[in-house]
């Protein structure tokens, strides 16, 4: 068992044979790499939820107008558009972040200075690519 630093003790006694729980987020000093790690998990959960929306959309398309109209109507509403934009950003962020992890899996890119730049790059890149997709979608609809 590794010594835990003061203040990082387990929040509750672990049952025997259990893997350790994650320390609480607030004990860590904020860095872009840890922010990108948390965002990677959050976008992963969002993408899973987005996939459920895709299933509902496909189901509605198969059923017919009675099902499709309300689903399409919701997705076309301002809130629906916000969800779609968020889903696109979430997919792009998770994809770019994933490529970053696949790269660090090879043992490269782990120097703090580069890792920080790569994490910030994922944030910047995800926003730029999402904007490009949103503009392209807008243009494709002949607006």
């Amino acid at each position: 068992m590794v010594d835990t630093p003061a203040g990082a003790a387990r929040p509750t006694a672990a049952p025997p044979q259990s893997p350790p729980l994650s320390p609480h987020l607030q004990i860590w000093r904020f860095t872009p790499t840890m922010a990108a790690s948390i965002t990677q998990r959050a976008t992963g959960v969002a993408n899973f939820t987005g996939t459920a929306v895709l299933a509902v959309w496909a189901f509605a398309a198969a059923r017919g107008e009675a099902w499709f109209a309300p689903v399409a109507g919701f997705l076309a509403s301002p809130f629906g558009q916000f969800i779609i934009l968020g889903y696109i950003w979430s997919l792009v962020f998770h994809g770019l972040g994933g490529v970053r992890y696949l790269y660090t899996d090879t043992g490269r890119g782990l120097e703090p200075e580069f890792a920080t730049k790569a994490a910030l790059g994922v944030y910047a890149g995800s926003v730029v690519i999402t904007a490009v997709i949103a503009i392209a979608a807008h243009a494709a609809r002949g607006a």
Binding site: G64, A69, A76, I133, A136, A137, A140, R141
Partner: peptide, 9 residues
């Protein structure tokens, strides 16, 4: 998504 968003049934 970019090419087909907003299409009808």
């Amino acid at each position: 998504l970019a090419a087909h968003a907003g299409e009808d049934l």
